[in-house]
Computed example of a mutant assay.
Amino acid sequence: MLNDLPYLSAGEGPPLVVLLYTPQAANPKGPARWSTMRLVRPFTKHFTVYVVNRPPGLPPVTMMTDLAAVYARAIATTFEGPVHVLAISTGGSIALQLAADHPDLVDRLVLAGTACTLGPAGKRAQRAYIERARHGKRPSAALAEIVTESTIGRVLLKGLLWLSDGGHEDYTDAVTVLNAEDGFDLRGRLHDIKAATLLIHGGKDLVYPLDLARQTVEGVPDARLVVYPGRSHNGTFTDKRFAPDALAFLTDS
């Protein structure tokens, strides 16, 4: 545990804190763990990577500022000085809040597939996820809308996502985090972020539309945007350019 937070670590070198979204407030297991470590493996050649998760059992009224404070305490008590942060999707929302509220803790920030607030489709899908979870239904099928624009693709994906939930998971912690992101809007606070920032974004991201990514970069004093045309939300992080682009920024002295 990293200041009571579950985490995975690998690699050698200065710390790189990675923030991702996971349905459970625990280290990923099985295929999810494999895909997580595959994502961060290129970074382990330059950094000691810490994939840090939230603690279980957060109060249902938790806001994004509360989540950022949880990670801020872990960073402040574990590392000497500010750290580099790599954050994806909902993890990026948390990282933006962290960098705005605790600018002394983040010295370089790479974001992917995220923005200063959710787009309309992202909000709609996440609210549907929350409602399904609250009614005891497998919730992930609600996310098909933000994965593809294809009608046939959504029908097929809903079935696959429904199966992926397994039927025995507790999604209470996931609902808490998604509720926090539902109320997240940092457009009035972006100027408080002092870290050098890179946002890598897909041109066809349905969760956080490209115009919101542009607003985010325009609001952060030292930020730039890299767009992968034609890439979806998930396609951004799996693109072969992602790790090299992020590493070039993180290791640029």
Rank of each mutant, 00 (worst) to 15 (best):
F242L: 10
G166E: 05
R224F: 06
F43P: 00
D4H: 12
P139G: 07
R108N: 06
N27S: 15
P23C: 07
P60V: 07
A76S: 14
I146D: 05
L98E: 02
A248G: 13
K204D: 13
K123S: 14
M1E: 15
D182L: 10
P31G: 07
L20N: 07
H201E: 00
V147G: 00
S89N: 09
K204P: 00
I94D: 02
F184A: 11
S164G: 09
Y21E: 13
Y21H: 13
A195E: 02
L109A: 04
G219R: 03
G81K: 06
A112W: 02
T148C: 10
V106E: 00
F237N: 08
N3K: 11
L111Q: 02
L247H: 01
D104Y: 11
D165C: 11
M63G: 15
P82I: 06
R224V: 05
R154V: 11
L198A: 01
N179I: 06
R134L: 13
E80T: 15
A32H: 13
L19A: 03
L2E: 02
V147N: 13
L161I: 09
R54P: 05
L199N: 01
Y228R: 01
V18C: 01
R54A: 09
D252A: 07
H135P: 09
C116Y: 14
K29M: 13
K29A: 15
A68F: 00
D170T: 11
D173A: 06
A100F: 04
F47Y: 08
P28G: 10
V83C: 03
E145W: 11
I88K: 00
I146L: 09
L186S: 07
G11C: 05
F47Q: 01
R154D: 13
L212N: 07
T36D: 08
A68H: 03
L105R: 04
I193L: 01
K204L: 09
T151R: 15
F47D: 01
N3I: 14
A174R: 03
A10K: 08
V49D: 02
Q24K: 13
D205S: 05
P56V: 12
R241G: 00
V110I: 06
S9G: 09
W34D: 14
E149R: 15
S93R: 06
R127K: 14
R138I: 07
N3H: 14
L105V: 06
N234T: 13
T62H: 08
K123Y: 05
L2W: 03
V51C: 04
D185Q: 02
F184L: 11
A69E: 08
T172C: 07
A26S: 15
G30H: 10
V220Y: 05
P31W: 10
A99D: 00
L2G: 04
Y21W: 14
T36C: 09
H233M: 08
Q24R: 11
P139R: 06
Y129K: 08
R214H: 04
D239F: 07
T117M: 09
D205E: 10
A76K: 07
A128E: 15
T151N: 14
W162H: 14
R124K: 15
G203R: 00
L86D: 01
K29F: 12
R214A: 10
P229W: 00
F79T: 02
K45W: 08
H201D: 02
R127A: 12
A141Q: 11
D4S: 15
R132E: 14
T22S: 13
L163D: 03
V175C: 07
L96Y: 03
T44A: 05
Y7S: 08
Q126R: 15
I130M: 11
P82F: 02
I152T: 14
V217S: 02
